[in-house]
Design a protein around this nucleic acid. Structure first.
Ligand code: SF4
Ligand code: SF4
Lengths: 150, 150
DNA sequence: CCCAATTCGTACCAATCCGGTACGCAATAG
DNA sequence: CTATTGCGTACCGGATTGGTACGAATTGGG
């Protein structure tokens, strides 16, 4: 099973890319080219992220996106939640009343604890962590310029 | 977003129910009645669990299912994996080569760490914990109301 | 020895969800 | 005013999922 949806996965990549140059303002097309993702999809993602307050958008000509906060203050959980919705293991973790078995289900109380553990695993990682430890990654990864000029 | 599929959720319930009476042998119909789940679905789940070695089945007349191991030796992760397949956050966590972006994706190395954290959260809980309510909760039960009422 | 009970295996179907796309509107720079 | 760019919504095809059905294999009892 794959937990994150493709969109959420891509969303993290896009956010990470923006975290690389927090000062620059990039439009959707530029980000799409840099990440090699379909333009339309990137636009959709950026919009969702902007809606959640993770990135801020400036409209009009010469507009674009940039991180709304420093990269260290944005957790992966936030990015994922912006795209896939709130994270919860089971139905009852998110929408309490949308499961007919809530009344007698014996496992329900325990999910809360597991839920919290999973949530913390995602909240512990920030965008800053995603870009900083390039140490153990081969030099091929550290070349945003080459990506852009393609 | 909901991480576990409905089937996996139900699977845990079924497994938990079996853990309540490890010595008795129950057939699919009995389990379905006890858990108030559709019979056909329960049969499917039990088969999947049997295939993964979580429960053992005896065929023929007066046949039925029972846990293959003591409840304390079966983790939730195992039950979920038996139904939903191996747990992984992203595509590259499970099937490494099934993502076209593996070569230059900057986030890939980091998912492994998060992946492990999530996996441990599920492996830390056994069926035994599920049937002895709140046994492992007390330390965190300081503010259970907030979690449960969410 | 035969029959009934029960699991096993597979195959199938309907519904929902997801990834992706298209098009028109609003806002801003020049 | 106009070109550029983000915003919003609506739509569609395909994949996955939840659920069902039926026949084959296996065992216990009469
Ligand atoms: S109440 Fe039980 S069956 Fe319903 S979503 Fe929660 S764990 Fe699953
Ligand atoms: S390589 Fe990157 S894009 Fe591909 S599944 Fe892994 S994280 Fe997602």
């Amino acid at each position: 099973m794959i937990i994150l949806s493709k969109l959420a996965d891509y969303g993290v990549i896009v956010a990470t890319h923006l975290a690389l140059a927090p000062d620059r303002q990039e439009n959707a097309a530029t980000v799409a080219a840099a990440t090699r993702l379909p333009l339309a999809t990137v636009a959709k993602l950026l919009k969702a992220l902007a809606h959640a307050g993770v990135v801020s958008a400036t409209r009009g000509a010469a507009g674009g996106y940039r991180l709304a906060r420093p990269a260290a203050a944005i957790s992966i959980a936030e990015v994922v939640a912006a795209i896939d919705g709130d994270i919860g293991l089971t139905q009852c973790s998110v929408h309490v009343d949308e499961c007919a078995h809530t009344t007698y289900c014996p496992t329900r109380p325990h999910w809360a604890a597991i839920n919290r553990a999973v949530g913390q695993a995602l909240q512990a990682v920030t965008l800053d962590d995603m870009i900083s430890p390039y140490a153990f990654l081969p030099p091929a990864a550290v070349q945003p310029a080459a990506e852009l000029s393609r």
